[in-house]
Design a protein around this nucleic acid. Structure first.
Lengths: 188, 188
DNA sequence: CGGGCAATCCCAATATGTTGGTATATTATC
DNA sequence: GATAATATACCAACATATTGGGATTGCCCG
């Protein structure tokens, strides 16, 4: 249910916003980014989530890391302060990265390959691309069915397969995917 | 005329992204955000810009603050490290703010009132833009209500007004509108 | 030949969004 | 001080999307 989602645990609202913006724009199937406090890590039952945590809090998280990882979560410690380096205190459970776009991208790629049902390569069939295009153009399933001369059930089946293949669950996500892949017009 | 533009001088790409996202989404007429290094402050001939600089660099900037301000620029020092507080070393030329959404919003309001010819060309209210942004990010009405601490009815009302004002009825349409207006990130 | 895949169709239950109302408090603006 | 805009909240009815099944046909390929 929560695959493709991410949690940010960081005290800085600017960094929250920045990480969120980076995660959502990478087209890696992350459609939901929430902000949490360290305590939530213990209380919650997150599954298959990408947890990005300020190194400031990573000690607290580390105590529960085994359980968190057993639930399919991936923990990434974000180190933003250049003069306060915790990266040496490495752990098998938490991957520490510096505040650097390259390492963040690298981490996201790892996340991609590690979470099996988030697919990066798009192997959409011809029909699926037709349906996706029309979804991004704002047509309802009923309208798509009418225009493609198929039943609404078939459209729904195609959409199930599209969301499964792309790992993108929301209509806005699919729309931006379509725009990024030139399936719909998008000027400047 | 560069009015409505802003410069970010910060070493952290996450904070760059976060500030950019915050500035663009606030509907205060800022349409262009660029990233610069401290040296650019001296070399450049910026006019009427909102310059948001890491306090880490503010000493360098302060030397040239008089000239920079004479050109109509406004300098804001951003302090993100809680354990490294420079806010006491106040200056008339640089307004220091902490990494806190309220103070940042306050600062942006001041910027608005200070720069008279920056007008919001957007017909949407601040709250409507918040809602639209979250819609385009794939959040459900329920999720939006939760994150904005308002009832789902209010979210629905805002959405009614948004669709009425913009004349865009579909979620994909709103998503592309948001992407075109830099409310959501859309790279490459 | 048999397995996999694409395309098609169907159902039921649940979740979510849309439409068209009404209504109040606060804040701007004239 | 009146008026407009904004933000908030509620309801009922209806429309649409999502989820989790199941199923058939034709086609390609090893």
């Amino acid at each position: 249910m929560q695959t493709g989602n991410s949690v940010i645990i960081h005290s800085s609202p600017i960094i929250q916003q920045g990480l969120k913006s980076i995660l959502l724009s990478r087209n890696i199937g992350i459609t939901d980014v929430m902000v949490a406090v360290p305590e939530d890590t213990v209380l919650n039952t997150w599954k298959n989530m990408l947890i990005m945590v300020d190194t400031q809090f990573s000690d607290e998280i580390k105590k529960h890391a085994k359980v968190i990882k057993k639930n399919g979560n991936r923990i990434v410690g974000i180190e933003t302060a250049v003069f306060f380096n915790k990266l040496d205190s490495c752990s098998d459970d938490i991957l520490y990265v510096h505040d650097n776009l390259d390492t963040i991208n690298q981490t996201l790629m790892e996340y991609l390959s590690g979470v099996s049902d988030v697919k990066s390569d798009n192997q959409l069939s011809h029909r699926e691309i037709e349906v996706l295009t029309m979804v991004a153009q704002g047509y309802s399933n009923k309208q798509i069915a009418g225009q493609l001369f198929i039943s609404i059930h078939t459209v729904i089946t195609h959409r199930k397969n599209i969301t499964f293949k792309l790992g993108i669950k929301s209509i806005p996500g699919l729309t931006l995917y379509a725009a990024l892949n030139n399936l719909v017009d998008f000027q400047r």
